[in-house]
């Protein structure tokens, strides 16, 4: 089996400060990988390098494209990369307003990606938008409301629908449950798990919340000061952490 994503030696610095360095891993189809670490550990920098939002200083991000097989997305042309990010990739931002058009209705938000890849039938677009609203548990009659009228949890679910409507194969998520109430988080996690299973998605989830990765991620990468300090199966890393930092991280979680 060819990995969906092969990351090799990614390094990104900000002047003399190292954002992340020497990051390599393979992600296989259907795999969900969590990246954990505290604020400033480089996990968001890494995610942005992987998703093409930041150019890394060094390294390769090879994605297995449908048309041409494995291609390095760091060196591919910008139009190609942007096309990938509209079709095969999705990016779920921590703050829904970074990922939504707040002045456009929920239906328009979901429909945008469809229109961006050439769908020109209003009826079809609307039907698929409503279908996706249902899948993220938003009532059909909210289709013409703007996201500004939605709760935080609904906005986040709308952002997910908007991202997944074109059936991407790889989803990048940056703290997808950050800033949400615990009960809303649970619902969102459940939803994401179902979608990942149903659509056979691969995902890379950046979070500092270990409970989130335990529920969503198959495997884990622990980062500290821009370096990967530990990788492995999620439950193994959490239940039998090897590195000092991971042990500290795991033991710092408050028990409920």
């Amino acid at each position: 089996m060819t990995p969906l994503l092969q990351v090799q030696g990614i390094r990104k610095t900000y002047g003399s400060f190292v954002g992340c360095t020497d990051v390599s891993f393979d992600l296989y189809p259907g795999e969900v990988m969590g990246i954990v670490g505290e604020s400033g550990s480089g996990k968001s920098t890494l995610l942005n390098c992987l998703a093409g939002h930041l150019p890394p200083d060094q390294g390769e991000v090879v994605f297995d494209t449908l048309a041409d097989g494995p291609v390095d997305t760091v060196t591919m042309s910008e139009p190609e990369r942007r096309m990938l990010s509209r079709t095969d990739w999705a990016f779920v931002h921590q703050h829904a307003r970074d990922g939504l058009r707040m002045s456009v209705s929920a239906g328009g938000n979901i429909g945008e990606r469809l229109m961006a890849v050439g769908d020109r039938h209003y009826g079809n677009i609307r039907e698929r938008a409503i279908d996706w609203l249902g899948r993220v548990e938003i009532k059909e009659d909210r289709v013409d409301d703007r996201p500004s009228a939605f709760s935080g949890g609904m906005q986040q679910r709308l952002q997910i629908a908007r991202n997944l409507v074109t059936g991407p194969r790889l989803v990048f998520m940056d703290e997808p449950t950050g800033g949400l109430d615990v009960s809303v988080q649970a619902r969102l996690l459940d939803l994401l798990r179902g979608l990942v299973r149903e659509m056979g998605l691969s995902a890379i989830i950046v979070t500092h919340d270990l409970a989130v990765v335990r529920l969503l991620a198959d495997r884990l990468m622990v980062m500290k000061d821009g370096h990967v300090v530990e990788t492995g199966l999620t439950d193994q890393v959490l239940d039998d952490p090897q590195h000092a930092y991971t042990q500290l991280l795991v033991s710092s979680v408050l028990q409920v």
Partner: peptide, 29 residues
């Protein structure tokens, strides 16, 4: 729909015109 000039220029350059239809979609809805 897109207030950033840098972004609209890029959209023209790359023929990313899906957003234009979003406006028409909003009209119909």
């Amino acid at each position: 729909l897109e207030p950033r000039e840098t972004e609209t220029r890029k959209m023209h350059a790359l023929e990313e015109y899906g957003l234009m239809h979003v406006k028409l979609y909003e009209d119909i809805s």
